[in-house]
Design a protein around this nucleic acid. Structure first.
Lengths: 212, 212
DNA sequence: TAGATTGTTAATCGATTAACAATC
DNA sequence: TAGATTGTTAATCGATTAACAATC
């Protein structure tokens, strides 16, 4: 409502800005111009200024941008000033890796529960996150407010689980299953299709090979 | 050499076409028109035809596309007709998840070795893939032809390891470390920045919340 | 004030979509 | 042949880059 529609191309660049600004801040650097940042990040200064100005004027003419301030503002835009509750569905290798990844927790993304169908691991914990039976999922999301459901199950199961999730009150799905999920538009979906990424790499290997 | 430069936007869409065509093939469907496929995939028929025609005419006027043939051709474009040897550097949770992921192997991507600095796991195996000491990495890539090095280490170590890899003969890096790797242009890099993906999701959650 | 650098408008570039002639 | 649908050119749209006035 307060902001006009920003293109996803811009949004996709924000985390990278955020990362570079965080590093600059950690190095104790207080100000940076769009030109300096452009050289560091290998993008045009024009794009940087355009991107930032989608969200209002963060800089100052003749001075540049205050690193700390800009870092904080981009963090807010990305929603990192509030915390996000997550559940993970599929407690296999990948699921456990994601639950254990501390960087998420440091940014306010924390797991409250994991779900799996494997009786051998139900009742165990990943760190301090309990692994529950998949049967408990509908009841769990009814009771516990959950922002993000992370889907790390085989694609055969993913569609069915997505339906269950949509019936609940979750706001978003972070989807690692290799399938397009049919969800209503009010539920945000971010896909991480690792196979697609690997195929893209494979294409570029071949193309590079042909050039030589 | 044989092909003109195709934009990465097109390449990024190929794996998704490949996935849908594979499903159609599995369902026994033999032909499909760009219009039918466009309805299935929620993209324009025009884009589909433009995309395919970057690589030559795969269809037939008045008929459409042969599913099996198109599937095979896109597979070839993506380099899936030849196999790729891989090593993984960082045998933690994520590394093990990737090594165990059979879908990669089914597509001809196979791991030959894993590397880690943790003495507790060096000498063990992930499936049938041995975990070697990081010290053995330079020698290993000197002796064993390796297409892709998968980097699943903390970002502090990633840069140093990238240097080692560049010194060897690998052709590509699939980078899961949250950092931009400085590598020469003949080495292909595909980044999977999970934090960036999660931040994007976080942005979209907030934006959707504001709209309501 | 003079110099620097943003914010923003204008120009360019590239990607997507529409249209239609070619042709199966 | 008539109908259907591709391959491809042209038109549109959106994103990126350039330019420069505003202003610190």
């Amino acid at each position: 409502m307060e902001e006009k529609d920003i293109s996803q191309a811009v949004i996709s660049r924000l985390p990278r800005y955020f990362r570079y600004l965080g590093e600059l801040r950690d190095e104790g650097i207080q100000r940076i111009s769009s030109r300096e940042l452009s050289e560091l990040m290998h993008v045009t200064a024009s794009q940087i200024r355009q991107d930032f100005n989608n969200f209002g004027g963060f800089g100052q003419q003749g001075y540049g941008y205050n690193v700390e301030y800009l870092y904080d503002e981009i963090g807010k835009i990305l929603g990192l000033d509030s915390s996000h509750s997550m559940i993970i569905i599929g407690a296999g290798n990948l699921g456990q890796a994601l639950v254990n990844y501390m960087n998420f927790r440091n940014r306010g993304f924390y797991f409250t529960a994991a779900f799996d169908i494997n009786p051998a691991i139900i009742g165990q914990k990943i760190g301090d996150v309990p692994i529950l039976s998949m049967d408990e999922l509908p009841e769990y999301i009814r009771i516990h407010e959950t922002d993000i459901a992370v889907l790390t199950v085989p694609k055969q199961e993913a569609k069915e689980i997505a339906k269950t999730l949509v019936g609940g009150r979750i706001r978003a799905i972070w989807n690692f299953a290799h399938i397009d999920l049919p969800v209503p538009p009010e539920i945000q979906v971010e896909n991480v299709h690792l196979s697609d990424s690997l195929m893209k790499l494979s294409y570029n290997i071949r193309r590079a090979g042909n050039k030589e």
